[in-house]
Design a protein around this nucleic acid. Structure first.
Lengths: 336, 336
DNA sequence: CTGTTAGCGCCTTCAA
DNA sequence: TTGAAGGCGCTAACAG
């Protein structure tokens, strides 16, 4: 066992002990360059004995890199916990896995877009070699502006031909349509969409949903603005039900939103799915644990995370990339 | 608007343009040292014009720091998504907030404890100025060993006088007792504990729970081993109910566990709380959205996160710290 | 008030 | 196969 706090703090200390030059130590420890195998083994043994490891920060400075990737959640207007939504934390977990596998650290940042330049500022501080943005929020303009001269970025979110950056995400429009068809198939006629159109992903879900409805149904469909937090979702739903609305089919922008709506419905004695069908979006782990289990539109979070990392590294290496859209999948459980 | 990719890559470039020395630029931009206000403003203007920002990595190397704090989840045996549990992700979100406020970046690491030295290796690589460990898992020995000669670490988890490191956490034993009292108060007599004792937090919850039961009740109380994942929890519960067990009171190691047990109970036609009372632990956001809303033992996650950061920074500054235990709180909803 | 200089810990070309 | 030297971008004495 070796001490973490040791007198050997740099390769020059080690060089002194081993009686060789710093460059020899460097070569021995990095494995780069040519070196006598005996010398290499000897130096590595000494390093291990003293518990010495190369200083990653210095190494990176010299190599002109940082070795870490920034993962940013630009949920500006939603000052509340972005990470509290299981969708985001699940994504984060998979990103951590994928980045670790590729030898990168994950720098988590929750900078709130106060100024116009928050993204540019982050990039210019040089803290990371690349950026993964989770969700565009309402920052489309800032993102596009940055993308015009910064390549090392990929974005989880909605695809648009007008974006000059690479996105990875679900086909939200198709997902919305899937939900509409399912509700219609169940015979629902008085529908409501719970969500907001601030962020493009949600706007697309809404558009896909509405566009798949027959005109007669669409005319009677309510759009209920709902925030991303469970508290906000529940409050919106409460107010909606309290006003006397009794839809027979609901499509919510997220699973957390759907579960919140169900909780509110329960307060009003509305039985799901008997009185009202509910469909969520995401298929987070808790969707199958809800009571009743939630019918939802599934997003492939793990696949998305891997794709984000893959494409980002390709861009960092100078390659070109194209946006990717995953086909969403209807998961039928009990609520619709 | 200024380009992110600019020809001005270092303070020496900027010094050249401004016609001053690098140290003057450094002083102007950092605000340290004394400098003519006019010169300072002029240099800052030029920097802004060229979109220049100090390179944080180089700055940190020079200052002998990294500017980031590592947040590690040592859930070794639970190879699955540690972050998928909302408790952890909520904690992570609050940590990100607290660290950002203090000017630190958050480096997320999910290194799985494969070797004995995983923690030492991480520390010696010098990637962070300090470490926040979330949960001890079964790594108590490794943590203690590291703590013997590494100060810059705090741990979220169970307190024990034998630990030579500072912990922040709930009084899990007291929390277990709270759950027991509540179930007894409701008249429950055939109890079960769903959880495992691999990690000390959970072991303490179990011990507190069992110790608060009268002997007669305790003898009939079942301990059902349950993994941390919802799938695992649900499978355990299913097997348990399938074997014909019909307890009238359940205490689960976590809210996710409790909700999973409720989902399984539902499959067997067991009504909560009528046939069986259920109490969880954590009070994650989804506890109040479950159907019926979950009675649980609340942990102050935000307070815990702030305390962890506070204590870590104090230790990094050379100060001494003592372990902190938060008093858990019984939140009565509908399941018990 | 400002410039010069010497590193932080490491990698890499160039020589030997 | 190994060593010497320069420099990644920055800060902080020490001079002037």
């Amino acid at each position: 066992m070796s001490a973490v706090t040791s007198s050997v703090r740099s390769i020059s200390d080690l060089a002194l002990i081993a009686g060789v030059s710093v460059s020899t130590v460097s070569r021995a420890l990095t494995g780069k360059g040519t070196l006598n195998q005996t010398t290499r083994d000897r130096i590595r043994a000494i390093a291990a004995e003293h518990g010495f490891r190369l200083n990653v920060a210095a190494q990176n400075l010299r190599l002109g890199r940082t070795g870490s990737i920034g993962v940013l959640f630009p949920l500006g207007h939603e000052k509340a916990q972005a990470l509290s939504d299981p969708f985001f934390s699940t994504m984060l977990g998979y990103l951590a896995d994928a980045l670790t596998e590729r030898g990168y650290d994950l720098l988590l940042s929750r900078i709130t877009p106060e100024t116009e330049m928050w993204l540019d500022d982050f990039v210019r501080s040089g803290r990371t070699d690349g950026i993964i943005l989770i969700g565009q929020s309402n920052q489309g303009a800032a993102i596009n502006r940055l993308a015009a001269h910064y390549r090392q970025m990929v974005v989880w979110g909605a695809y648009s031909p007008e974006n000059c950056y690479t996105t990875v995400g679900s086909d939200n429009f198709a997902g919305g349509a899937l939900a509409a068809h399912r509700l219609l198939h169940r015979g629902a006629k008085r529908l409501a969409w719970f969500g907001h159109a601030n962020a493009p992903e949600f706007a697309a879900r809404q558009a896909g949903f509405l566009s798949a409805l027959p005109d007669a149904v669409r005319r009677d469909t309510t759009v209920v603005p709902m925030h991303i937090t469970p508290e906000g979702s529940r409050a919106s739903a409460r107010a909606y039900f309290a006003a006397g609305h009794r839809p027979d089919g609901i499509f919510a922008a997220s699973d957390v939103g759907a579960i919140s709506v169900m909780a509110a419905a329960h307060e009003f004695g509305i039985a799901v799915p008997h009185d009202m069908a509910v469909i969520g979006f995401d298929d987070i782990m808790l969707a199958r644990l809800s009571n009743p289990p939630l019918t939802t539109i599934r997003q492939d979070i793990e696949g998305g995370a891997r794709m984000l990392v893959e494409l980002l590294l390709r861009r960092m290496a100078g390659g070109e990339t194209q946006s990717v859209q995953f086909a969403p999948q209807l998961i039928i459980r009990e609520t619709a």
